[in-house]
Design a protein around this nucleic acid. Sequence first.
DNA 1: CTGTTAGCGCGTTCAC
DNA 2: GTGAACGCGCTAACAG
Lengths: 345, 345
Amino acid sequence: MPTERDQRPLEASGGPPTMADVARIAGVSAMTVSRALKGNSYIAKDTLQRILSAVDQLGYVLDRSAGSLSSRRSGFIAAIVPSIDNSNFADTARGITDALEQTSMQLLLGYTNYSVEREEELIESMLRRRPEGIILTGGQHTPKARAMLANAGIPVIETWDIPENPVDAVVGFSNADAMEALVDSLVGQGYSRFGFIIGSEASDTRGYQRHLGFDRALRRHGLSGDRVVSIEAAPIRMSHGAEAIRHLLQRFPDTDVAVCVSDLPAFGAIMECRRMGLAVPHDIAIAGFGDYEIASVSEPAITTVNVDSYGIGTQAAEQMIAMLENRASAATIKTFYRVELRSST
Amino acid sequence: MPTERDQRPLEASGGPPTMADVARIAGVSAMTVSRALKGNSYIAKDTLQRILSAVDQLGYVLDRSAGSLSSRRSGFIAAIVPSIDNSNFADTARGITDALEQTSMQLLLGYTNYSVEREEELIESMLRRRPEGIILTGGQHTPKARAMLANAGIPVIETWDIPENPVDAVVGFSNADAMEALVDSLVGQGYSRFGFIIGSEASDTRGYQRHLGFDRALRRHGLSGDRVVSIEAAPIRMSHGAEAIRHLLQRFPDTDVAVCVSDLPAFGAIMECRRMGLAVPHDIAIAGFGDYEIASVSEPAITTVNVDSYGIGTQAAEQMIAMLENRASAATIKTFYRVELRSST
DNA sequence: CTGTTAGCGCGTTCAC
DNA sequence: GTGAACGCGCTAACAG
């Protein structure tokens, strides 16, 4: 009994069909198939028809790895984030993907677990795929990573921060300034005995920056920044916030507001307060950072800083596209942040 | 003044250095460089040294797209999830990446926004990269997608569900059974007037399955499954839960437990109850699904079903590796689920 | 509008 | 241990 394959006498036997197979069936050259499938060349209507039906018949799918080798354009944009299961960075990745959708670029995504060594490895393994551009989180990279990036000769965009020595372009905001704005608002609400809850400052440079902004603001207001509880973990999770608020109140019982490095520990802290029978914000006020969905849904809703995670992604991708088209050169794009005062303070 | 480049007389001018450039500097053939960098061939010690220092000098990075063309192995595993900013699927993606790390495989990740049409597009654009295997979420695919998958001739693993007509291998659990187990436990706690909160059943097949399990369990217990509030959104978010619980209690004020399709709306519902002055679980009990971090941190902690999101990822990747090494063929691997009774019921 | 030639940068294969 | 020839599947460049 003849199988479907027997009806394709011209197809090479091993592996998936190639462009040459399509060409033979359509009675044209491979080049014409290439042009037809790309879509931006003039092809005779019936030639196109024959090609498309051959593609259909074979179930042919373009091979971009071969295409990129020849055209010297991989069609990849690499992006590296600290963690994929943090909704802020997931939003950024989503923004990048969405903005890339208009182009034929594909996202190559990796996460570092907040380790610069892991970032270095990732950069190398991504560069092996010859991405046309690379989007990083933050400005902290190993010397070797910097060297590889320089050598790659592709646009580099650092996000989520304003590094002092940017590699190339930047899309982000000053985490220190944003935290300073939050503290200012809290001082404006009448708080004066500030606690701070943070994870590993060595790994989480954005957290470190926020701590700097916290200190700066308090100093400016003549207040103490000594009530700090540091959980040596990156990323800091909700449960860490619960743990931290207990330590904070034990060591500094006079604290009237606990500022957390992100909404996740802030939420954990609020829930822990409820368990301890403390009213938020009456007994202790709590603020977060990042404006995760939980911040507005939680009761009490959490005072925080909205930072346009998704927009960082779309703007980084758009800047990347512009740079690839030589419509833009290395720039620093500042994204907005906005203090959201809610009922937890 | 001589630039660094002037000291590399043998390097081709345009683009990043190639293996041939390294070979010239090291005084060997490109083939030897290839072998040296791969690492599993015998190379004379000093040859290796010369090659490595040439690599260093040039900042050479292997070009895997060229390598894959030649070796006919892309080193890509494709994975498609409904949404990347849902921590359950993010955990699965993390599991896949982590398990792949032992190999030289790289993850190509995409998300569908719960649309099968988008999934079809994604499958095509990923197949263009010639992945060696593909991991999907669920068993709902367009006919064209199924055809492309069949044609690709690579292992396909469907996850997060037990499809009736699997394409190939499966790593997941029955969402219907898991929900049934949850309802059984709640009946055991004495609840009898069940409400159900769900998003778009057309897009979220796992949600649909959970609804089936809900109905099945209630029918078995002789209880009504009519108290349903459906929010036409996928994915269903925390805020939808807040909205839904109001509708539910308005239309079915006698409800004694509201079962939500996931922990996210369950949390939103609990917070909304607090706003409405209802005590959970005293006035109304609420259960979720998925055991997101929030379920255990929240106060009250949320009764839910733990479903090993991360393990689905690692097991899918391991099964994929086994299939690629011909150590395994299409199998159905059932992952565990476990009802977690907490204080919200 | 279509075809021919050449080559992208590697790894496979065979030879020594 | 190392090298030469060849080709992976496609597209750039040029020709017609």
